[in-house]
Design a protein around this nucleic acid. Sequence first.
DNA 1: CAGTGGTTGCACAT
DNA 2: ATGTGCAACCACTG
Length: 527
Amino acid sequence: MPSAVAPQRSILWFRKGLRLHDNPALLAAIQSATHLYPVFVLDPWFLKPERVGVNRLNFLLESLTDLRSSLQARGSNLLVLRGTPQDVLPRVWKDWNITRLCFEVDTEEYAKDRDSKITEAAKQAGIEVVTCVSHTLYDTKDVVAKNGGKPPLTYKGFEKAITSLGPPPAPVADPPANLPPIDASSKGTDSSETGVPSLTDLGYPDEASTDIKGGETEALARLAEQLSDKAWVAAFEKPKGDPTAFIKPATTVLSPHLKFGCLSPRLFYEALQRVYKEKKQHSKPPVSLLGQLLWREFYYVVAAHTPNYHRMEGNPICKQIPWDDNEDFFRAWEDSRTGYPWIDAIMAQLRRTGWMHHLARHCVACFLTRGDLYVSWERGRDTFDRLLIDGDPSLNSGNWMWLSASSFFYQYFRVYSPVTYGKKYDPEGKYVKHFLPILKDYPPKYIWEPWKAPLSVQEAAGCIIGKDYPAPIVDHAEASRRCIQRMKQAYDNQPHAAQPGTKEALKRSANDGANGALKAKKARRGN
DNA sequence: CAGTGGTTGCACAT
DNA sequence: ATGTGCAACCACTG
């Protein structure tokens, strides 16, 4: 093992995992290292307005700034480089006489391809490559192996697999107070050339519209603050949260930090276990806070091991549904012009703050797809992927498949109401008025369905429906009824069921039989 | 093959 | 607050 003892010059390549705590790749990089080059590559593939909105980009830049300060405090630095990693990294590892490249495993589609190319090139150049799993609790491959070689498609199956794996690894030790230096003679490493750019440097507006702040320091403070209310942690049940709470959200809002790895999932896991140990009575997965972390893990496992996971076509776990290609409906949904204040306010919150409560996401996702507009989940997914600060492809596509009843969840007749769902949490309409100020003077009686207000009320509120704020683009009762019918048809027409005598067809008829028997039983009970 | 359960539906009953 | 009808899905189990 000569590499373990020979003096090393390491690149630590940050992508996600923008933290020093629980960073096994960092510990690997400093092993017998004389020099350490912490690098982040700003990839033009990612830096496009259609791919990342100003709020998430701002969060990333804040995270990089924080990481840079932390590294500087340890005698190191963060070298922020610009360009495609496949171009940039081979250039610098040559310039800097690098012997070892360390990074965190990233299971996402784009990352897998990028990393395999980089790994190949590094090996060709005689550079040792070390990768570590620390973005997820487990190595996703291990979960799949425990589930018989396939990713689990139910939470129960997932739970069984991780139970047999045992608890995830504990966080690794913090790095030492002094890190190996960057060789001052190395080309292009001067602090003036390697700083974190501003939003305007990258062609974005000069500031974000959100209050959500990025960075490991912020993440650890938020974790401590959220978990300090132990009674709240112990009682947490996701479906009981209030999606209209916006001054103090009903959840932890740690998701952006988990997305970028400012917070280690293993540290979060460990911190939760400490609270649960103290509070004997506490909620359990899947609804507890721990459950939320496990759902994240679930989607990472499925995403990493399902071909064409981010598309309907060619995706073996996704129902094939002939969605409407209705650009007007899609635009109205995206731009808060559906005429349903609940839907439009949620989308306004998304654009302004880059975050909404999970259940609010459900409502707009259901509305766009199987509930009302019958537009493809891939369209809505793209909008979320761009605008959410916590936009994380594995979770995002998975949740869109869930809500559109394309995978994981199939009770398509359970449709969220774009009127009553928000109203039951917020009868006064404070949420709507905050995010749709045009409606701020509507009386509570009409705030959730302003088109029902008499003209005199509309005039008094200074907002005429159909002129200042749209009338509903669909009648929900009618649209949802039709969507349910179309979903039934789409399910019946799944390509797998086409050939009689196939395994799938046999399974179908078995299910029909079960259904028939249930109907008969109901009929008997009725008589 | 029959039955059970599925993180989070709605409207209306009691 | 809990229960029901709605029209009836799927994955998984034994």
